[in-house]
Design a protein around this nucleic acid. Structure first.
Lengths: 196, 196
DNA sequence: GTCTATAGTCTGATAGAC
DNA sequence: GTCTATCAGACTATAGAC
């Protein structure tokens, strides 16, 4: 992409976030300098401050945007009455969404401790809302005896952890396709929750 | 613990690693300075270099030590013939070991990207050996039809991810005891692997 | 074994020219 | 909107006194 002189207000902002996302996912927030981000975008360090008030806000915006989009996509799903169908759908959704956005996901799970307390509270609230979607499915299934889970909160966290782990290895495993991976995780999650 | 003058060769080394572990687990490797570690120990920054050649090696030693101890403890377990018993034992072991060492575990899983390539290869090899213990159990159970898992590698990773997730929340959940948590995870893992 | 002092480099962020 | 130049402070690591 050739660089041209003059104004880039509409394109540079997103390119700054894209570069920050790429670098932070690879090296971590604390290890990435504003100068590195600027170099990746192709501008000088000072120019970044036209698009973010500071480094902390840049990280926060990345995480907030990711969580809001995740939540919106999840809340837009149809809501099957059958708890097993709802759980399988959730698992497939989570796997697919996370496979497609490895960098955003990685940052959202790894950089929580680098958020200021106020920013952390916001992200944690969004995460809690997302987990509540799964917990509701598990609760409904347990109520009708299709699932058997003594502690819903523990089960929710365990299933989310299992599914999110896919981002750690998926890119490395060439032969296996998206759908095949999603199918296998969905099957395992169904077994995990089910009554014997 | 009162400080005394003179030699501390035998105690300061471990205290440096303990301080580094505490700080890195909380704030991340890149965000923690040698000065902070020194302050936590109660010495000047320069003195740290009597106990580690550099910051990178300090991180590497923490991770290597943790993985070697984990592996040794795992390999010292009895080996039940029944795959279900073996899997339940592995799950309980993993939960218990990780609950007791939240800082070391957190670092081992979060700071991989801050290792030099050579150090990364060593840690990755140790992790691979650990995962192989679980994979062998799943393989044995699948061979006799007790478990049903189309892809052993994927299942191994999924189960490890589910179990390791316990460190993210356990400390926050006062009322629930170690054994109760281990029981519930073991039960879920058994269901995850089992043939229907 | 620990200290002080310091080299040399990098950091986040700002000011002002264009 | 981007640049250059710069501030004040932090960083890792080393040298040499004690």
């Amino acid at each position: 992409m050739a660089r041209t002189a003059g104004s880039h207000a509409e394109t540079t902002g997103p390119r700054v976030r894209a570069a920050a996302q790429r670098l932070i996912a690879r090296h971590g927030y604390a290890a990435v300098s504003m100068r590195q981000i600027a170099a990746e975008v192709g501008v000088q360090a000072g120019a970044l401050y036209l698009y973010t008030p500071d480094k902390q806000t840049l990280l926060f915006d990345l995480m907030r945007l990711h969580m809001e989009e995740l939540l919106a996509a999840c809340e837009a799903l149809p809501e099957p009455c059958d708890p097993r169908a709802a759980l399988a759908q959730f698992a497939r959704f989570h796997i697919g969404y996370h496979i497609d956005r490895p960098e955003a996901v990685f940052i959202a799970y790894m950089e929580l401790r680098n958020l200021s307390p106020e920013n952390f509270a916001v992200i944690e609230g969004l995460r809690r809302r997302y987990e509540e979607r799964l917990e509701a499915i598990l609760r409904a299934g347990t109520a009708v005896g299709v699932f058997a889970l003594p502690d819903l909160r523990l089960a929710t966290r365990a299933i989310i952890a299992m599914l999110t782990g896919v981002t750690h290895w998926f890119r490395d495993m060439g032969p296996m396709g998206r759908d095949e991976v999603a199918d296998q995780y969905a099957e395992m999650v169904l077994k995990t929750a089910s009554a014997r």
